[in-house]
């Protein structure tokens, strides 16, 4: 028992979905438990923050949303040999990061007063015994030093199991450097990738089999997304939403995707297509292109006062 590596998991500003991915290890769990034991995990065991053991590997899910997240992240960093930012929220901020489009005040008012499921006639916003929200969501790497990113929403169980087993066996982990299109089974049109219109899935209906979704007018984030998931969604005719984040070469997944879509759009009639058309057909630029990566983007939050 004493030889086993001590693994801890932690859950910060996320939804616990990534922990389900660990719980879903299936038979690989036996292999992992051969080499390691879970010493600290709020999801699996009864844990006390003042009795955190020294850990060899710490797997952290979720970004930094509030002061408590930051405090726990810093405390656990001290205890852990190796910290893995696990899941897209820890790596890039994830979906909670879209909260960066609003001020903290707007978020608390909406959450505690305006939302229709809330009964709060006196309009009280709790300010005691609840952690204060930070000004914006940040990826884990902006609060503490992170040794490895395993993105995904959630990361596939077999990817995580393999990564953890490789680590425990002393190997090194390399994330793919290619984008999703490299592993996507759909074929690009022989004449080159071109988009004549942008549509949403319900307008297209069932997309054609085997043909690239972008060529069929769907905004598929594949060109700006890392190929870690094996193109699961495009394989079953669902456009990629970019939940694994970009490859390491890209600073800003949304900007990269804007570049790709604007170039592909009407590329065959480059000189005659109305340049405004592509912008007209895309309403929610931030929501479409930055669904998972806003806090890690070059402009990580909405500026107030209209840029003045």
């Amino acid at each position: 028992m004493a030889d086993k590596a001590k693994v801890g998991t932690m859950w910060l500003g996320g939804c616990s979905g990534c922990h389900l991915s660990i719980a879903d290890f299936h038979e690989s769990l036996l292999d992992v438990l051969e080499l390691a034991q879970f010493e600290f995990s709020p999801v699996l065991c009864d844990t006390k923050y003042d009795e955190v053991p020294e850990l060899d590997v710490l797997i952290v899910e979720g970004g930094i949303r509030n002061e408590e997240n930051r405090e726990l992240a810093e405390m656990l960093r001290e205890k852990a040999g190796l910290v893995i930012a696990y899941g897209t929220c820890a790596a890039y901020g994830g979906i909670p990061g879209l909260g960066n489009l609003h001020t903290v005040e707007e978020l608390t008012t909406e959450g505690y007063i305006n939302s229709c499921s809330t009964v709060n006639p006196e309009g009280i916003i709790p300010n005691e015994d609840v952690p204060t929200l930070e000004s914006r969501v940040r990826p884990l790497g902006e609060a503490i030093q992170v040794d490895l990113l395993i993105p995904g929403c959630p990361p596939k169980s077999d990817v995580v199991a393999e990564a953890i087993l490789t680590l425990l066996n002393g190997g090194t982990i390399e994330l793919p450097t290619t984008n999703l299109c490299e592993v996507c089974p759909r074929e690009k049109p022989p004449a080159g990738l071109a988009m004549d219109f942008i549509k949403r899935q319900f307008e297209v209906g069932k997309p054609e089999d085997d043909l690239c979704l972008i060529a069929q007018g769907l905004v598929c984030m594949g060109p700006a997304t890392v190929s870690l998931c094996g193109a699961q969604c495009p394989s079953i005719a669902i456009p990629c939403r970019g939940c694994y984040g970009p490859t390491a070469k890209v600073n800003d997944a949304g900007a990269k995707m804007i570049s790709a879509i604007a170039s592909d759009y009407g590329i065959n009639e480059d000189k005659t297509v109305d340049p405004e058309q592509v912008a007209d057909q895309l309403d929610d630029i931030v929501g479409t292109f930055y669904t998972y990566t806003l806090p890690a983007a070059l402009v990580p939050a909405k500026m107030q006062k209209g840029g003045k």
Binding site: A279, A301, M303
Partner: peptide, 27 residues
């Protein structure tokens, strides 16, 4: 041949993006 046409389309999206991010279209 057509690099500037691609930029033209791209900029229309960038204008929307910077407006949405509160930096301002004018900048």
């Amino acid at each position: 041949d057509a690099g500037n046409y691609k930029l033209d389309r791209r900029m229309r999206l960038v204008y929307k993006l910077v407006e949405d991010m509160g930096i301002g279209r004018e900048r």
